[in-house]
């Protein structure tokens, strides 16, 4: 399996699963505007998934389409980080999860616009513009909720405490990345982590929130080892294609 295929699936699955999670808010948003905002962002993620998995299928060269990859793999073949599959819980938890992810995605796409792989650079250039809006949205909510009432502050602080353990995995690198790094297809995750941390600190500071002191971190998603949530997500996501193979509407 090519390293580029694996890398594209990792990014594509992050968007696919996060997009699905956000779409679960459809009809359940705390206010109409946020219902629309979250589904808009979900749509951007599904769009980015389409670009990434379509290209992954082409790189793989076995004739798999973006739909085949999205709907017809098994749990252990999904490569998304654990963070994006965590449950929506309340609006504060969803916004915190989104912020921690957006703060990583934006500098990642900024790096990838300089990729030596022309198509990956094109996808990054396109997606970056959307991601800037996502980050602005989630960061503003983290600030508003963190620096809001006692109740909202406590809830988003708890969300941060619970989600923090999934953040190191955003910068996960392994054997797969060696060749891609050497060829200038992708770039250093240390640089990425620096930009991420800077953004996270700035926003959390304004939100009067505190980074948890606990060094415990979890990983596994990039290797296909997921939390219990992914199975339930896939059951819903794949239902139609599993029940009626090849159906279209």
């Amino acid at each position: 399996m090519s390293a580029l295929f694996e890398y594209l699936v990792r990014l594509g699955d992050d968007s696919l699963i996060l997009g699905h999670r956000l779409s679960e808010w459809c009809g359940h948003g705390p206010i109409l505007e946020e219902d629309i905002a979250m589904t808009n962002i979900a749509l951007d993620h599904v769009g980015q998934t389409t670009s990434l998995l379509k290209y992954a299928g082409e790189v793989e060269g076995k004739g798999r389409t973006e739909d085949d990859l999205a709907f017809l793999r098994f749990e252990r073949e999904y490569r998304n980080v654990l963070l994006v599959e965590q449950a929506n819980e309340d609006f504060g938890v969803t916004m915190m999860r989104q912020f921690l992810f957006d703060a990583y995605r934006k500098p990642l796409y900024e790096q990838l616009t300089k990729s030596s792989d022309v198509q990956l650079a094109a996808i990054a250039e396109k997606s970056l513009k959307e991601t800037k809006y996502h980050l602005k949205h989630s960061a503003e909510w983290v600030i508003r909720l963190g620096d809001g009432t006692d109740e909202s502050h406590e809830r988003v602080q708890t969300a941060l405490n619970n989600l923090w353990r999934y953040t190191d995995e955003l910068f996960y690198t392994d054997q797969n990345d060696v060749e891609l790094l050497a060829n200038g297809v992708i770039f250093s995750s240390e640089e990425l982590k620096k930009s991420w941390m800077e953004m996270v600190k700035t926003v959390l500071d304004r939100a009067t929130l505190t980074i948890p002191n606990n060094g415990w971190q979890r990983e596994g998603g990039r290797k296909g080892l997921h939390s219990e949530h992914l199975g339930y997500i896939l059951a819903e996501l794949q239902y139609m294609q599993r029940a009626y193979p090849g159906m279209e509407w």
Binding site: E33, E34, I36, A37, N40, I41, L43, D44, E130, Y133, K136, H137
Partner: peptide, 13 residues
């Protein structure tokens, strides 16, 4: 601005 995200992806409210 009411919301950064409007009736379609390309619009704000």
């Amino acid at each position: 601005m009411i919301s950064q995200f409007g009736s379609t992806a390309c619009k704000a409210h």
